[in-house]
Computed example of a mutant assay.
Amino acid sequence: MKPIILNKPEMKVVGYAIRTSTVEQRSLREIPIFWQRYIEEKMWETIPNKLNDRVEMGVSIDCDCEGGDFTYLIGFETDAELDLTDSELICRTLPAATYAVFTTPPVPEEKFSDTIQATWKEIFQNWFPDSGYEHAGAPEIELYDERTQNREAKQMDIYIPIQPRMNG
C-alpha cells in the first residue's frame, strides 16, 4: 500500500450524520447500514448547495478518541453559508490538512463494503507503524466519485490526516 501524500485546503461538508463508536466494532456494522438507508431513501436529493454532486464523502468528525465515539457524516462539499435550523442536516468545516490518500482495489459491487473495511484495517495495522507518520487528529475522509459507479470494479479513496511522527 503506497499512498499519495497531498495537502487539502479547508473545506465545508454538508450532509446527514450518525453517532457511532469503535467500541466492539459498532462502526463496522452501523456505517454500512447508514449508507444503505442513505441510498434507499435517496437522502442525497435533499442536500442543498453541493459543489459537485458526483463526489460524495463519508467523513469521521467530532471524535472522542479516548471513548471511541465519533460522528460519521455522509454528504457533499459546499461553499454556502447554510441555515440548518430545524433540519436533520449538519454542516462542518474541515481544517486544512496533509493527507495520506489510499485507493481501494477495484472489486465487484458485492465486495465493495468489505474491501473498504479491509483497506482501513491495512492502513492502521500495517502502513502506519512503519510510515514515519502519525495521525494528525483532523477528520478522516472517504471519497466516493465516478469510480463507485462501475459495478464490476468499484473503487474509492480514503484520506487519512497525517503529520511526521514525533520522536521520543
Rank of each mutant, 00 (worst) to 15 (best):
Y72C: 00
E66F: 09
M57T: 08
R26V: 00
N49P: 12
T148F: 00
S60N: 14
P105A: 13
E30H: 02
M57H: 01
Y99P: 04
S27A: 12
I61T: 05
I31C: 03
E10W: 09
C91R: 11
F124L: 01
P108A: 10
Y133C: 05
L84Q: 02
H135F: 12
I4N: 12
Q25R: 12
T93A: 08
C65K: 14
D64R: 12
R29H: 14
V13T: 03
P139T: 09
D53N: 15
A118T: 07
P129Y: 06
L143F: 07
R19V: 12
N126M: 10
S60H: 15
P3K: 07
T104I: 01
T148K: 03
E30V: 02
G68H: 01
R26I: 00
R147G: 00
L82H: 00
S131Y: 00
N49T: 13
E134M: 06
A118L: 14
M11V: 00
K50W: 08
T148I: 11
K121T: 14
D53I: 11
R29K: 15
T78V: 07
P9Q: 11
L28G: 08
K111S: 14
V59C: 01
E24N: 10
A100I: 02
Q25A: 13
Q25H: 15
I39D: 13
G137C: 03
P9H: 13
V14T: 00
P108V: 05
F124T: 06
I141H: 06
F102Y: 09
T115A: 10
G68D: 05
E122A: 14
P139L: 00
R147P: 01
E40L: 11
V23W: 07
T103A: 06
Q125D: 15
E122L: 13
I141E: 02
I18K: 04
F70V: 03
G58N: 02
K50I: 03
I74C: 09
Y16V: 03
E41A: 08
T148E: 00
P139R: 07
L28F: 13
Q125S: 14
I123L: 10
T46C: 11
T119Y: 07
F128E: 04
E10S: 05
L143R: 09
N52H: 09
I47S: 00
F128T: 04
E110I: 15
F34K: 03
V59S: 05
N7K: 11
A80F: 12
E140S: 10
N7G: 06
P48T: 09
P105I: 11
P48G: 06
E40W: 12
F34I: 04
S21I: 02
F70C: 03
A100D: 08
V59W: 01
Y16C: 01
A138Q: 05
Q125W: 15
P139F: 05
M57S: 01
A17M: 10
I4K: 13
K42H: 11
I123E: 04
E81Q: 11
P3T: 04
I61N: 05
T103N: 07
K50H: 08
S60A: 13
E146V: 13
E10T: 11
G132P: 05
Y144R: 03
C63I: 14
T85S: 15
E41N: 09
I4T: 14
